[in-house]
Design a protein around this nucleic acid. Structure first.
Lengths: 236, 236
DNA sequence: AAATGTTCGATTGTATACAATAATACATGT
DNA sequence: ACATGTATTATTGTATACAATCGAACATTT
């Protein structure tokens, strides 16, 4: 590896700590633990059949990932993500996706470009057939390829981080069936700009693509999802 | 606190783990431990008078901060930051600084704006007197205020992370005395754009400001600093 | 009854003991 | 001499024991 990441991945999948970390992350992102829920070291340890040590170490990492908040001598609590945070992330991402598109224009390999083209083509097919799952998968993959093509581990990592982080919110809003075709059309335009080596246009399009995605999310009830959450929290 | 950070700060300064973390971070950033140096748990523990447990937990956090790399069952190694990484970070920062300037334009308070004005004024004074240290301090502070004024904890945290990260490189390059006045002039322009509520201009200026800072760094021997480092590594 | 101590249990923080792993040096066989 | 296997040792990984801290319930005082 030539350059080092700003943030390191947790690659150690097979140590107990790694397993605890991955499991907890998944459970938090999937919503198994709800916001502000307290995580107790022994309870988690017993559930996964390990002692407190690896659990504690996993906690420390989850804290830096922003998934839990540790109050010294008190406890670990699942963090929430506010409506404004979501907006901020999308706006930040819009800038960085633009940069990724620019760099991809400069550095993309033939294979990567071909995968992009195929992606757009396949998405068009699944879109017509109404295959939402495949469409979501292709959407993710399109962005992944662009990140890789950017040739910047640094940027790639940042964007992946953000992407994962907002996954929590995606689950709260409706899967928007009607955004599929439009989103794919935008992918196609980005891909074409990259292919034609028009970095300025690629950046601009990728930037707007993310803003459109956010606005679609708002339209599909981001605010309502939060209001609902508020209400339920008050009941308890 | 309304919104949560994407990445949490390590606030726990008074636990042993917090102290180990902060100490190690400082030592790595200051260059006490060189690139690829192995950090042994017992050795660090003895040096700071603590057992392995808090050291290990600090290690796990430093890994996610990207300052060390842990290879399972093997060891913890101080990570380097490549020449390309530095460039990437500056380019990413340029985008995000631009966004921060935009949001600052929308959200800045009177107090914050006044601090910016005072900052620029003071910097002009110290620049004429050749007070490099105060100038560097004011430079940092200018950006800090802008981050705060952006009103986005998310963005603020990202930018602070990047800023800290490149501090390691700053030490390798010369302090550029002649950039001072130009940099402050750019600050003034950014401040004026914010004051006049011209968000587009503020974003554009802040963006360019960071690119200029990077190019100045290159001119002042970033590449040479790396070449020198290569050479020394080969000798060993 | 309200405010203030106080005790006790639960939980986190740290140290230490033990297990697993990896690297090194050495021995052995070809 | 080279390759391969093996013992040794240093180091990390995990479990557990003990200390410190916090909070809730109860007791005490006014």
């Amino acid at each position: 590896m030539s350059g080092n990441d700003l943030k390191q991945e947790v690659t150690d999948k097979y140590s107990l700590r790694g397993r605890v970390f991955n499991r907890l992350r998944e459970d938090i992102l999937s919503g198994k633990y709800e916001e502000n829920e307290e995580l107790r070291e022994v309870a988690i340890g017993e559930e996964l059949g390990v002692s407190r040590t690896p659990v504690r170490e996993a906690f420390r990492q989850l804290e830096l990932e922003g998934l839990i908040r540790i109050i010294p001598n008190k406890g670990a609590y699942v963090t929430g993500i506010s409506e404004k945070d979501v907006k901020d992330i999308y706006m930040i991402r819009s800038r960085l996706e633009g940069l990724a598109a620019r760099w991809a224009t400069e550095n993309i390999t033939l294979e990567q470009l071909e995968e992009m083209e195929e992606n757009v083509y396949l998405a068009k097919f699944h879109s017509e057939k109404g295959h939402l799952e495949q469409l979501a998968e292709l959407d993710n993959r399109f962005h992944e390829v662009m990140y890789e093509a950017s040739g910047s581990k640094m940027l790639e990592h940042q964007l992946r981080d953000f992407h994962q982080y907002v996954l929590r919110v995606r689950k709260k809003t409706l899967a928007s069936a009607n955004r599929g075709p439009q989103s794919n059309l935008e992918h196609e335009q980005i891909m074409m700009a990259i292919k034609e080596k028009n970095a300025d246009l690629a950046e601009q399009l990728a930037h707007q693509h993310m803003i459109n995605a956010y606005e679609n999310m708002v339209k599909n009830g981001l605010h309502e999802a939060y209001a609902e959450r508020e209400k339920q929290a008050n009941i308890k």
